[in-house]
Simulated assay, not measured.
Amino acid sequence: MERIEVNLATGQTTTHTDFFPAPPTPLTEDEARALLPALTPRQLCMMLPVIGLSEATIEGLISAIPGDDEKLRADIEWRKATSFRRNHPLVLSLSAALQFEPSELDTIWLYASTI
């Protein structure tokens, strides 16, 4: 879009093409996922049976993580976190182990945010 400026004294016109800012650059999928709402542990656990899973399933996946330090950190994160972000490494790791496509997890995540 452009803006035309007219000098009334001289009749000279000036065209400005920078009158309106350029449209924002679309977000990448990762940037959009980072903006999804955080889930509480309650929301996450309430969602599990809806998709055919249980807390025991998640705990089993965590116990199968190789490396004692990694497993311990994942267990602490699962049991003690006050919120979960869609792009958190534990969420990404568990969703990969469950073979969720990123778009499937996005849908699940958005639904869980309404619980």
Rank of each mutant, 00 (worst) to 15 (best):
I62V: 11
A74W: 00
D69A: 12
F84A: 06
A74G: 09
A74E: 01
I65M: 07
D75M: 06
P89A: 09
L72Y: 12
I76W: 00
A74R: 03
A74S: 04
V91N: 05
K80A: 14
I62H: 01
A81M: 11
G60V: 07
E70G: 03
A81L: 09
K80W: 04
I62G: 00
K80C: 10
S63E: 13
N87A: 07
L72R: 13
I65G: 04
S83Y: 15
A81E: 09
I76H: 06
R85V: 02
W78M: 06
G67D: 12
A74P: 06
K80V: 07
P66W: 06
A81Q: 10
G67R: 08
R73L: 09
W78Y: 11
A81R: 03
G67M: 12
H88W: 15
E77K: 00
F84W: 14
D68H: 04
N87Y: 08
V91M: 15
D75H: 09
E77V: 00
K71Q: 14
I62C: 08
E77A: 11
V91S: 06
P89N: 04
E59D: 13
A81S: 15
K80S: 10
L90P: 00
H88M: 11
I65W: 01
D68R: 05
E59G: 01
D69P: 02
R73Y: 10
P66L: 02
A64C: 13
R79F: 06
E70Y: 10
F84Y: 15
D68P: 03
V91H: 04
D68T: 12
A64M: 10
S83T: 14
S83I: 08
R73S: 12
D68C: 02
I62P: 00
L90S: 01
L90M: 06
R79A: 12
D75S: 12
G60E: 12
W78G: 02
I62A: 02
T82I: 04
I76A: 05
D75P: 00
D68G: 12
D75T: 11
R86Y: 01
I62N: 00
A81K: 09
P89R: 09
F84Q: 05
E77S: 08
I76N: 06
L72G: 08
V91Q: 13
I62Y: 02
S83H: 15
W78T: 01
L72E: 13
S63T: 08
E59F: 03
N87D: 11
R86E: 03
I62W: 00
D68Y: 05
A81T: 08
W78N: 02
P66Q: 08
S83R: 15
K80Q: 15
R73P: 02
A64K: 13
G60H: 14
R85K: 15
R85M: 13
A64N: 14
T82C: 07
F84N: 03
R79C: 05
F84P: 01
I62R: 01
G60D: 15
S83A: 15
H88D: 14
G67F: 14
I58N: 01
D75C: 10
P66K: 05
E59K: 07
D68M: 08
E70F: 10
R85H: 14
P66T: 13
W78P: 01
P66I: 04
L72F: 06
S63Q: 14
D68F: 11
L90F: 05
E59V: 03
E77F: 00
F84T: 05
W78D: 04
R86P: 00
D69F: 10
R85A: 07
T82L: 12
T82A: 12
F84G: 06
T82H: 08
L72N: 12
